[in-house]
Design a protein around this nucleic acid. Structure first.
Lengths: 191, 191
DNA sequence: TGAATTTCTTAAAGTAGTTCAATTTTTTGC
DNA sequence: GCAAAAAATTGAACTACTTTAAGAAATTCA
């Protein structure tokens, strides 16, 4: 059930049998229906979600009620509002499944105990967050260096299957564009 | 000399005297003149820089030779190209001092040894990167939710002293705007 | 101190992307 | 399998921001 999670972790650190077993015993499994919520804004984000299958989206709601997607969570990715999680404060984010999804859940309540029993998990998450932070800075750079149209093309080139997988308006939101503009881009290319 | 660094670390983890001493003994100190470089693109980023005083800027160079600033490093902030650092690969970034600055340097060559001797440093960096990642996602969200003008006003409100501290064209680059446009915004407000 | 360089401002013309509104296409659920 | 809902497209009017260019102000350093 947690095969993919264990494999992911063991790409970064080594676990012995006891540790593997402990980890599996404290994780929770959840199957989320399409449009099901794992986090709603105003609530505390009391869990980290590791995506086993499906796809999540993390978004905030702008003043005008419009949803701004911050990131997608595909299998092998952790999704969490870290600030809310660590400080037990209400979150600004919503996390919703864009399709039927399965997640492995690590609850805040048990995190510290788990880390103290498997200290190398600190290293695992250090490496995970370091990578994610790095990717996030790269993204900021690209955002400012490329036009909206270029961003779309690059994304479509890098993740051709994913572009098919989520509705176009979600992709538009994620890329900071309007669905109408993506339509225009696509019409251009079709010609 | 490394007071601020130790204080920073001890906000997140506890160090004993031996650990403090070890840490201090392996850090390097460097004073960087205004416009001095700590990293140039094409080179491997073989150090993490903790800003003790002054201010750094991290930027990439776009096709058109224009510099795009990704982030500033103020005292208490770590600056590094994590990907280059961990994988020993050439960096895309430049890191330059915008004013006379002092940094504490942690070299890649000694990181693993240091972490094995002070394992709680993994936790320290896990927490640091978690925070930085979180901040970076928040920034992406704001970028898409606010107009350029709003972004400038919010930034100027949150960091009034910093706006005075760096040339306006650097601020413009960081905010993804042109210096001309910031001039217009300021002229408006002046009225 | 004063000449050279860097930074900031102003204004006019141009453009990438938005907004709005109406229509078509695709997907969903009973 | 069909009605209803959700998503995508089209086009016209609009706007936030850029580009270019030239002059003014501020900063640097010999």
């Amino acid at each position: 059930m947690y095969e993919d999670l264990l494999n992911h972790i063991e790409k970064y650190i080594r676990l012995n049998d006891a540790e593997r077993q402990l980890l599996v015993s404290v994780m929770r499994y959840e199957k989320v229906p399409k449009k099901g919520f794992l986090l709603k804004s105003g609530k505390v984000c009391s869990s980290r979600f590791f995506v086993l299958s499906g796809c999540l989206r993390q978004y905030i709601i702008k003043e005008n009620e419009v949803e701004q997607i911050i990131q997608f969570g595909l299998p092998g990715w952790w999704i969490c509002d870290h600030h809310s999680f660590e400080n037990n404060q209400p979150s600004e984010y919503c996390v919703q499944a864009t399709e039927v999804s399965e997640v492995a859940i690590l609850d805040a309540a048990i995190q510290e105990d788990l880390f103290s029993k498997i200290p190398s998990l600190e290293r695992y998450f250090r490496l995970i967050f370091q990578r994610a932070y790095d990717a996030s800075l790269t993204r900021i750079g690209l955002e400012y260096c490329m036009s909206g149209e270029e961003r779309y093309h690059q994304f479509a080139k890098n993740f051709p299957d994913f572009v098919q997988r989520v509705p176009q308006y979600m992709l538009a939101s994620f890329l900071g564009l309007t669905p109408e503009f993506i339509s225009i881009i696509r019409a251009k290319k079709g010609k």
